[in-house]
């Protein structure tokens, strides 16, 4: 069993065996984890169900997070779309609402699926569940899609630790957006190459994204970043489906993601010592919260 570690290896192995990314990925994962493929797919489906549940809880809730820094915006967005439908249509409405729903659920200590992290938990589910509902995607294809997304994140994790503390938000919401772009491209019938290019186009466009959460909490700017980067994934997917490629090859872009993460000051990597966290308002909020919490 060959365990592919780069996008180049992954694409060449899939080509050699005439299979999709998900087929290669599930065979590898079943081997590494010593699990039957069917059981692995059951686990993946359990996570998809948890994503749906999280979105359903999130769109109903008005509750603020404990800090009060987030919550309620998902309701606002739904009310807005009810009065004034989104310029980009139903898909845009659902993707943004669903991404906010999960991200707000996360901030209020609700049950979420880290994908790849808790702070970026809204992005992949928003794209997946919107497609499932609007395009009537079968259970098997849903599972294939999430496995495809997982493999994209897994390949990247070979070079970059998927944590804001390690490489900034580019490694959390950025990678999530790449995973969602690949997932969407698969669901829309894109080839393996197009799936990878979609992911890489999304990631290339968020290189350098910092992690500077106000008061150190996964709320500002994290919650709103989820709908932004879910939509970002759609742009990348459309371009990839059109046959647009990244001039810089996928693995080289991942190298840059890692190098940029290393070059970023610790001040901008989840320490809340700079950026938005150390604005005048950020500092004031920190003082207020110290008394409140």
């Amino acid at each position: 069993m060959i365990i592919t570690e780069t996008f180049e290896e992954l694409l060449s192995e899939c080509k050699k065996n005439k299979q999709s990314i998900y087929e290669q990925a599930q065979a590898e994962e079943a081997f590494v984890q010593d699990l039957a493929v069917d059981y692995l797919r059951d686990i993946v489906y359990r996570n998809i169900c948890a994503m749906k549940e999280c979105i359903q809880n999130g769109i109903k809730s008005k509750e603020l997070s404990k800090s009060g820094l987030s919550g309620g915006d998902c309701k606002k967005l739904q009310a807005h779309f009810k009065n004034s439908p989104a310029l980009f249509g139903k898909f845009f409405e659902k993707i943004t609402v669903y991404a906010l729903a999960s991200a707000e659920e996360n901030a209020r200590m609700g049950k979420i699926v880290a994908c790849p992290t808790a702070g970026s938990c809204g992005i992949v589910p928003a794209v997946l569940i919107t497609m499932v509902e609007e395009e009537n995607i079968s259970k098997d294809i849903q599972i294939n899609g999430l496995i495809t997304a997982g493999k994209i994140g897994q390949v990247i994790s070979n070079k970059v630790r998927l944590a804001g503390a390690a490489a900034g938000c580019q490694a959390e919401c950025g990678v999530a957006s790449g995973m969602a772009a690949g997932l969407l491209t698969y669901l829309r019938g894109g080839s393996n190459e197009k799936v990878v290019y979609a992911a890489i186009l999304a990631i290339k466009n968020i290189l350098g994204l910092t992690c500077d959460p106000v008061c150190g909490l996964v709320e500002v700017p994290c919650v709103k970043r989820n709908p932004f980067l879910a939509v970002h994934a759609v742009t990348a997917s459309e371009m990839a489906l059109a046959g647009i490629v990244s001039k810089i090859p996928p693995d080289e872009v991942v190298d840059v993601l890692a190098r940029t993460g290393n070059l970023m000051s610790p001040v901008l990597k989840e320490t809340s010592q700079g950026g938005l966290a150390k604005t005048k308002t950020g500092i004031e909020l920190e003082k207020q919260l110290a008394d409140k919490l």
């Binding site: 590494v32 993946v44 996360n106 609700g110 702070g119 897994q154 994790s157 070979n158 630790r161």
Partner: peptide, 22 residues
């Protein structure tokens, strides 16, 4: 590489928020 994950790690866990580390 210490951060290296399995595919299932990347799309898991199902957890209560808000932070993987905290």
């Amino acid at each position: 590489m210490p951060g290296r994950k399995t595919l299932l790690d990347v799309i898991s866990p199902i957890m209560v928020g808000p932070s993987s580390s905290h």
